[in-house]
Amino acid sequence: MSIELAQRLQQRFADAITEVQDARDMPVLICKKDQISAILTHLRDDPDYQCNLLTDITAVDYLKYPVKQPQRFAVVYHLYSLEHGHRFRLKAYLSVADLSIDSAVPLWKTANWLEREIWDMYGIRFNNHPNLKRILNHIEFEGHPLRKDYPVDKRQILTINDSLMDEMDKRLKEKGLK
C-alpha cells in the first residue's frame, strides 16, 4: 500500500525522486537535495500522505561503507502519518563539495534541534536554519565526531562556558522584548 503511494510520489516528482526502494521496514525514497523542501511539504500536506509527524532526521557518513553509494553523506528523514499510519524514509545524498540542504524548520518545529544535531555531528549545513549551532558537543569543540574520519579515541580540552546570550538575544527579539 505505502509502496504504491511512494511510486505515485515518484511520478509526481519525476525529476526530484531518483529511486524508490521497497525496504522491509518502509518505502525508501531517494531524493535530490534541491527539491527536498517541496517533497517534504507535499508529504506533509497532501491528504493521501499526511505525514504530519517528523519522527527523525539523521545523517549517515558512507566513507567506509562496503557497498558503493552515490555520495559520501546522506541526510535521512523518517516520516510518519498519524492519520494513515504509514511511514516513509527519505534519503538525500550530499556531495562533500557542497554539504548543505534546505532546512525543514518551516515545516516542523522539531527539525530545529534535529538539524542542529546533524550540523554538530556531521558538519552538514541547513540553509535558512534559524539557529545552526552545536547542540550536544561543547561550543569550542573542533571537528564533527560522527564522521568516519574522526577518531573514536580523540580527546579535546574544552574550557569556555557558553553564556547563551546569543540565543537569548534572538529569542528576545522574536518575542518583541528587545
Binding site: 550536544l136 529569542r171 522584548l177
Partner: peptide, 26 residues
C-alpha cells in the same frame, strides 16, 4: 537560561549536552 520579569519567565533558551557520552559513535 531564562529572562525574568519579576517571577514571570519572559524568554527561555536551553543548553544541553552535559551528559553527552557519544553513544552513537561508541
Amino acid at each position: 537560561f531564562v529572562a525574568l520579569d519579576g517571577e514571570t519567565i519572559m524568554a527561555a533558551v536551553l543548553e544541553i549536552g552535559y551528559l553527552h557520552r557519544g553513544f552513537e559513535k561508541t
